[in-house]
Design a protein around this nucleic acid. Structure first.
Lengths: 339, 339
DNA sequence: ACACTTTTTGCAAGCGATTGCATAAATTTG
DNA sequence: CAAATTTATGCAATCGCTTGCAAAAAGTGT
């Protein structure tokens, strides 16, 4: 493996000159620069990551933080697609990525601690955003940058983030159902401490209010089939005339569909259903699921771009909104007008 | 951030002594060791990754290689679960992980090149195994260790790997269908160059031969609904009496189910179906999918353990087989005996 | 108590890069 | 043409840690 000394020697200059030449320093003359570059190329020189980082106290590595393992999260391909996007732009920019995961928030925070302490990692991307997240509290204690995917809970103007316009997306979903004649529409979620769920709900509520229709919220995790069935029985007792659901993501939509399908009475009612994320689930469902696509890979890419750009001292935060798009499939039915 | 000098000073010894004490070197006396450890703890000392790696020419980082992005791969939660397992044991052992992805095998190989050249990464885990993989060819050219998840294509005895007994799993799946009275069973796959698919097929073929039943293989990617329908029409023309399918994984099973469900004639036939991986898909399908669980997280954990253990010079390879388990749900029906 | 082991420690030289500062070369100027 | 600048290079220290080797301390035997 060639070192910078080898390059310098071959180019007939000193290591310091070689280093400067390769970094495009302005004080190196054109001819020497060319010599050095040629030598480097000939030797297939690649700077040693560790040495470089040690000398510069940088790290060229961004830490990608997954949410605390609630098990269901790791069966959600959404995250992998974001990671893919992140990795794509990172490898194009000579950065590396490393993952932080944890089975509890303590463990996760600890893992992040060591990344910061030993690894000199100074840039993070959080793949999620939720209220009172111990991880961001910790990150705030250090002199590190981070960008979150999703809307930050606090300090929206001081934290860089990339997100969809989830409020609008929620509105669009509900509006789509309204357009199909539905009037009693339920918003189904699992955990409102996740910002994304809260925002989508807000959007839903917005249209519903506008049309002076009731907000009907169902928060249910479908831990098991039985609990799901139970919850729905109770739900329909209270809201017998609901005809459609906005589910906070495709997985929730499918879980709902699952229990609806398994009950003869419910099944025949043909509830309408709309999900979010346009994940593979939506294509595989039966009927195929109408869903709002949010382009996770794109989210990842944008987040990585922000994370990589050395932010100047003045600490301006960046916000990127990536557009969403409704993908129409077969889970939404037109309500026949009775009048 | 405390350095080893600080620790040494506080403990009243030299840095070298401190270093050795912290590494449990045998030549340090008990009292000094304790002094050093106490000082380190008091200062909250954590060794600098870069400096350590530079000095030892190690890297404490393992590269996790994802398969080339065929898009569908990134919608498969399977990988994320393996990563989760890997990360878990790595962070417990003070190792980091970094991901290698690529949109083409050239790009992927390139990314691995830079990891090796600049990053001094000497340990990799491949999350897949396929025939004639350019990635392993490249890895073989360097002095690096790697463990593959899945059965290696070449040199099975020289390469460390962790895998399920996929042949047996294939057998179990087919046998389960046989036990339910099926006699014309199709094996559905998408890409036989993946070792995992080949193995499962082998297992299927083994039982079928044993019972002197025909091997019926359908290789179809279901790129679109239309191509799927077309392929199945052709298929049923040739094999009209097939009553059950062993799908090479849950996703394939669901894609099949999807097109079967959408055709009135096929739908009524109630084909039996069994998948692999026991992914979230199988619970969300309707009917719920009987599937063979393979515990991807466990696969990841085992792989990481192997990758972390410094292998001695003699280069003994390790193979770990993690057991599988059939998870019975509702996609397999008993065939009524006509005799 | 002395010479001889054996056990503990510390010195100093790396690892491969970057960078402030001094020096050498090139250029300009009076 | 010598002096004063300006521009280009190289020296050497540094980042934080490890490790071979020599030196110091402690222990042994006679």
């Amino acid at each position: 493996m060639a070192t910078i000394k080898d390059v310098a020697q071959r180019a007939g200059v000193s290591p310091s000159t070689a280093s400067r030449a390769l970094h495009g320093s302005k004080i190196i003359s054109q001819p020497t620069r060319e010599k050095v570059v040629k030598a480097a190329r000939a030797l297939n020189y690649a700077p040693d990551f560790n040495a470089q980082n040690l000398a510069t106290k940088a790290s060229n590595t961004i830490g990608v933080v997954l949410p605390v393992d609630h098990h269901e999260i790791f069966s959600n391909p959404f995250f992998l697609e974001m990671i893919r996007g992140i990795n794509e732009v990172c490898s194009q920019n000579g950065s590396m990525t490393t993952l932080a995961t944890g089975i509890s928030s303590d463990e996760l925070v600890h893992n992040i601690d060591v990344m910061i302490a030993q690894g000199h990692i100074r840039n993070f991307i959080l793949l999620y955003s939720e209220k009172n997240d111990p991880v961001v509290e910790r990150l705030n204690q250090f002199d590190v940058h981070y960008v979150v995917i999703g809307k930050p809970y606090h300090d929206v103007n001081r934290i860089s983030y990339v997100d969809n316009d989830n409020v609008q997306a929620g509105t669009d979903a509900a509006q789509y159902l309204l357009d199909h004649g539905h009037r009693r529409i339920c918003f189904l979620c699992s955990d409102l401490s996740k910002m994304v769920q809260g925002d989508r709900m807000l959007g839903y509520q917005r249209v519903m209010m506008q049309h002076q229709l009731p907000n009907i919220i169902l928060s249910e995790r479908f831990e098991s089939h039985e609990t799901g069935v139970q919850a729905l029985h109770k739900f329909f007792k209270n809201y017998p005339d609901v005809t459609a659901f906005v589910a906070v993501d495709d997985m929730m939509a499918l879980k709902l569909q699952q229990v609806l399908h398994n009950d003869a009475e419910w099944k025949v009612k043909q509830f309408s259903l709309i999900g979010f994320n346009n994940s593979i689930f939506s294509e595989l469902a039966h009927p195929t699921l109408t869903s709002i696509a949010v382009f996770p890979q794109r989210l990842g890419e944008e987040a990585a771009k922000i994370a990589i750009a050395d932010r100047p001292k003045d600490e301006l935060s960046t916000a990127v909104i990536v557009p969403h798009q409704i993908i129409k499939r077969h889970s939404v039915h037109q309500v026949k007008k009775l009048l």
